[in-house]
Design a protein around this nucleic acid. Structure first.
Lengths: 126, 126
DNA sequence: GGCTTGGATTGATGCCTGTCGATGCAACCT
DNA sequence: AGGTTGCATCGACAGGCATCAATCCAAGCC
């Protein structure tokens, strides 16, 4: 059948869409290594909560001073986790005067979501 | 809009849909811990490749004997990774005569995908 | 200038985890 | 029964990682 023909679509690899989708085709080592980095960044309860705190924020931005007290951890530890999330491309930040603000990067999240989706909802109308 | 109304649906917590979605609301510690376990399972290149090999298989099943030679790793190591994927609920297996066959569990993958999706595509018609 | 406060960085420490060789176990085959 | 093959388990080891106290830097304030 043409099943294998279809898959080739999504993997342009140029814009960051990356990777054909988990169900679509086996990953090569490079793709797997890159995606693993992202999932590893999500593989910690503290980072997940941090990310959800940031991503669910109405204004789209959160000051670190609002994040730290939400955890029973030291300030350096929170800072460390934020750094990992940022290095993974899941969030970004900016210093604005005294405070540092973080926000989520939806593109990375959606990319991972698309990768995991098994029922390829062919929403790619483009 | 009714955006926030829609999301509440999926979080029944009874069937495994779990968790309101990353962008929707902050996670509590239990939700974060449970999801982190899943993402941690995905946070390794070898496991990602294993999962993609299994999930993309036409028949839906793969014999371990087909998986092991695809890696430059010892057989116990592959077995170890398969065990972790299975404990995470991402795959399951069955011994059939001499060989053991693995298959993917799409429900878990779709659940994670739905959790990560930022643009809640309200596809939950059910 | 000094002081204070918000965050990031550093270094150290203990745990977790990926890997392997060796072994065990189950199923097939003489 | 004995031998062989496919996988899982065990024990050990090395590297990675989460955490903290101490420190440092930047920005505001006196």
């Amino acid at each position: 059948m043409s099943k294998q023909e279809l898959v080739v679509l999504g993997q342009s690899d140029e814009n960051g869409a990356c990777c054909p989708g988990l169900v679509t085709a086996p990953l090569d080592e490079d793709q797997a290594a890159e995606l693993a980095k992202l999932f590893k960044a999500l593989g910690d309860p503290v980072r997940l909560r941090l990310l959800s705190l940031i991503a669910s924020r109405a204004g789209g931005e959160v000051c670190v001073c609002d994040l730290t007290p939400a955890f029973d951890l030291s300030q350096p530890t929170i800072s460390h986790h934020l750094k990992l999330l940022r290095q993974a491309g899941l969030i970004d930040c900016e210093r604005r005067g005294t405070w540092v603000y973080y926000w989520a990067l939806p593109a990375t999240l959606d990319r991972l979501a698309a990768f995991l989706e098994t029922s390829q909802t062919a929403e790619a109308t483009a």
